[in-house]
Write a protein that binds this DNA or RNA. Sequence first.
DNA 1: GCAGAAACGAGAGCGGTGCTCTCGAAACGG
DNA 2: CCGTTTCGAGAGCACCGCTCTCGTTTCTGC
Lengths: 227, 227
Amino acid sequence: MPEKPAGGVRARVRAELTAEIKAAARRQLATEGASSLSLRAIARELGMASSAIYRYFASRDELLTALIIDAYEDVASHIEAAESQCERADHRGRFVAIATTLRSWAVANPNEYALIYGTPVPGYAAPTDTIDPATRVPITLLTVLVESHVSETSEPDESDLGQALADVLVFTNHSVPADAMALAIEAWAEIFGLINLEMFGHFKNAVTNPSVMFNHAANSMAERILP
Amino acid sequence: MPEKPAGGVRARVRAELTAEIKAAARRQLATEGASSLSLRAIARELGMASSAIYRYFASRDELLTALIIDAYEDVASHIEAAESQCERADHRGRFVAIATTLRSWAVANPNEYALIYGTPVPGYAAPTDTIDPATRVPITLLTVLVESHVSETSEPDESDLGQALADVLVFTNHSVPADAMALAIEAWAEIFGLINLEMFGHFKNAVTNPSVMFNHAANSMAERILP
DNA sequence: GCAGAAACGAGAGCGGTGCTCTCGAAACGG
DNA sequence: CCGTTTCGAGAGCACCGCTCTCGTTTCTGC
């Protein structure tokens, strides 16, 4: 998909139409859900032949991929913006900001949330284009964790736990002990667990106010994992 | 769907065929995923006309519902069996048994797990038939929690947290304090978060051995929430 | 400035889906 | 035994993703 920055007329209308298709897809996503996203319906809405869509996206999966990347970028931008407004030394505040912003974004964009953090579409294998934007959010969390452990430096951990978390421990240059990293991953999982349970309807007859529950949990987690 | 217990020939072959359809559906579910489950493919596999399926299930959604109920019952049976083999007083052991059995079941039956704990099918609203079997698993966990707080009895909690958790606190007759209940819900969310992250591919380049990580977390949670 | 190349939109068509309707055969029950 | 109900099969409808062709429009190199 070569897009010249300000090339001829053709390149411009191509960029515009690509954006219009994505916009229509997002609109349809919001009302129908990901798995029933229909290229033909998008084409109908845009007043063009269904086959014309294929000039812009080679397949339905490629459109989905584009939407997934956009969603990752969008949530990452929100979270980074919220986190950057906290006092640098206030690690717990930064963690809570990350967690609560993630939930707010999920509540505001349930279908995009489901798209990136829900059940993967069956035959769909995430292309490599998606892994980069997907890492932005966890990296902001890891940064807070590393900065709160700034004075420590440890050797590679040879324990079972240390080996199980080898990849992420290497990623942080072993500046975070394995058990502290495990606590952080637990918190990370808890955040998604709470959001998933709320969004996918498993809090019925149990938690009446998910927002209060989530804020309580976020503060509880911050105390638990950050010194 | 009236099914006479041992009625005429017709009732028996109807029950058998219903089971065969579900079996074929489950087989297809394991290889294709829920959203691409095809009634026509099932009919083909069973050597019957696609329209004949509708004598047994009024729609694709109804078949899905039947599979969902079966999955809930199956996971609940596994968890109850594992939990019942623990010493009654060993609350932490019972909790760990519940958690690890849930994960084992999810790893062994990824598509049924996704069916009941993943993103809901877009237009699909869980019929009332599913809520009953869905509660069996959380109830086993709540039972452990309540039994570990057996000596305490408290009044309705009027705090924000107490009100946010009102439904489940009432369900347990206020025998568990609100903050302890919140910790338990946090653990509950963490369990699903860990399983989701693992199953849906978000542990790539981070956690190399999800099993070790999960067992570590399960024990950590047990210490955290149970006295 | 113009001819060849590339990009584009529309339309027809293929095989697939869920679902409905009709029709003849089979099993049931009085 | 005969009327009623249940069942399987087939045709058909509207939709889907996707491919191919064909005439038109835009770009590009000479």
